[in-house]
Write a protein that binds this DNA or RNA. Structure first.
Lengths: 345, 345
DNA sequence: TTGTATGCGTTATCAT
DNA sequence: ATGATAACGCATACAA
């Protein structure tokens, strides 16, 4: 009874296996890590014991001696944003396929929180990190460099950056879309953006709109930009503001699909029809873009690929296999019903 | 040069701190874990050294001696499903607030994969687990019991289960909605469900529809049920099948919002208008339910609360604080435009 | 092929 | 208040 209780309470160790199988702990260890370096007969015997008593290597001990945990950390703004949820799912799947486990934390789009999470995940044994975007303080960046922490930046792309980035050029992608909008004849455009502070993706997208405007002869600096956090309600609120202006825009460019859909709802609620009264565009191409009526013109972003490739990059980084470096995964404009030429003029 | 390089490569240990501060390793350890048990002067000195050389406790060594990692694992079907993404986000936030870190894996709705992930996360040092639903083999259940692995089941509720569950009664919730539908006069109803194999939530919801039907005098067994994986396209495909039947249903009850929205799109694409020609209901109340036109009648589920309460339950379990046990978080029917009485009759 | 012995970095139990 | 020291469980260099 006492023995049985003990069996349940105390997890078995290599010692237990060794004793039971009549071999040394070294042999047990080898059976697990290098089965081929052990005699057929003994291996069978040891494996049987392992199975019988339900032995599993102690994680802490293993990490202590191996100096790695095969665990990778990801810090994303929030999983509630479908683009990150999707990318993270692909990231996890690819890690799992390669024997790595995923540690997750979220920054809520707050740099100081991200910094804390970086330290936390590393303290929790993460071998490497996935971070979103380039916007972070020089302090933490230097800290990461000093400690030689392997990490990649995703959802952004800058081939001149000193650390690998996996994503796409937000500025260029948005400029391409804005060019389409302006090319259709829209000359009063407005932008609904996520807060740009601490968010280089949003900032780059807004910059992309101005690039296209300047290029096509519009007054880039005069384009109104409303910044508001990610949510349908906020998209709607921003649209309401824009429609209250004297020079109502004929096209509203949003930095993500959620804001765009919120904006569309509000425009319709205020009696405007889309796209005949006002055009709206999004960014990301999440499922909702095809569910709304009219369907949303947006920029398709390969979220799953970013997650997958980020995982591969990190694994390569850890394995010292030849560095894959930066990966530009590209984007594609999806022209749909929410964008059309302005009515008169 | 060599020394500096060494500094960068080798992470500093308690030994380094102790030497530099002229104290023993025990004192350094105390400074970190029980600052009050150390003299003011020495603590200041030690802390300064820690700061200076950038010391951080080694995770493996700590886990080895403490026999816990303050890490909790979650295995969910997929983060791409917004309901889990949202719940997981809240789960992570609550864990973070309490000093725990989150390890994530996904089962893709496949029991055998879930089983593997359970073993993996435990092998990776997870102190406790969050699992979704009750549907899993007796083998793994027994295994968990034997090892005394603390875990909770979420997104389901069964107060008679031997382990804590945090969620709601899927069957009862769906029965309540179905009662509303049938009460409105619909007597030809159909169900679009996720695959019920290995998914007790889906199964319970379908059962709920039959409960209500039987209760209100409809032939419960004759209600057509189409099972198809979670996606808009599949929801649309299922609706297409249903509309091809001779006795076309007047109301289609879907076990989640995504299938429902897909079904709505298809119905409309086939020239039917909602709800006058056909009613549709969903389950979950994710954002898309209010974006679609007409808005979707559905069952509101407190996803964030489930994540948060699950975390609290797990933490309580680990802390031996009085067991909170089961938590029924309840649901609410959200009546919206997609449901109306059938036209004639 | 297998065994012996040692170190990995921390924490905790004793002393002092 | 502080120090010496023994685990913790595993992997590996070295012996046999």
């Amino acid at each position: 009874m006492t023995r049985e209780a003990k069996h349940l309470r105390q997890a078995p160790t290599v010692q237990d296996v060794a004793r039971e199988a009549g071999v040394s702990t070294a042999t047990v260890s080898r059976c697990i890590n290098f089965p081929e370096k052990v005699g057929e007969a003994t291996r069978q015997r040891v494996m049987k014991v392992i199975e019988d008593i339900g032995y599993a290597p102690n994680f802490g001990a293993r990490a202590l001696v191996a100096k790695r945990t095969n665990t990778i950390g990801a810090i994303i703004p929030t999983m509630e944003n479908a683009i990150f949820a999707r990318g993270l799912q692909a990231f996890q799947e690819e890690l799992g396929r390669n024997g790595f486990t995923l540690l997750v934390a979220s920054s809520s789009y707050r740099p100081e929180l991200e910094e804390r999470q970086i330290r936390t995940l590393l303290a929790r044994g993460a071998d490497a990190l996935l971070l979103i975007g380039f916007d972070r303080g020089p302090g933490i960046t230097e800290w990461l460099r000093e400690r030689r922490v392997p990490y990649v930046v995703a959802w952004a792309f800058d081939s001149s950056a000193p650390i690998p980035s996996v994503g796409f050029d937000n500025r260029r992608a948005m400029a391409a879309l804005a060019r389409e909008v302006i090319g259709l004849g829209h000359n009063r455009i407005a932008v609904i953006s996520a807060p740009t502070a601490g968010n280089d993706r949003a900032r780059d997208r807004v910059a992309g709109v101005r690039d296209a405007a300047a290029e096509l002869g519009l007054a880039a600096e005069e384009i109104p930009v409303i910044e508001t956090p990610y949510s349908f309600e906020n998209g709607a609120g921003a649209m309401e503001q824009l429609l209250g202006r004297t020079d109502r825009p004929t096209a509203v460019i949003c930095v993500n699909d959620v804001l765009a859909v919120g904006a569309m709802s509000k425009a319709r609620a205020m009696g405007l029809s889309i796209p005949s009264d006002i055009s709206v565009t999004g960014f990301d191409d999440i499922e909702i873009a095809r569910v709304i009526d009219p369907e949303l013109t947006t920029v398709h972003v390969p979220h799953r690929d970013m997650g997958r490739v980020s995982a591969q990059t990190l694994i390569a980084l850890l394995g010292e296999t030849d560095l894959p470096g930066h990966r530009d995964l590209g984007t594609e404009i999806r022209m749909r019903g929410s964008l059309a030429p302005p009515r008169h003029r």
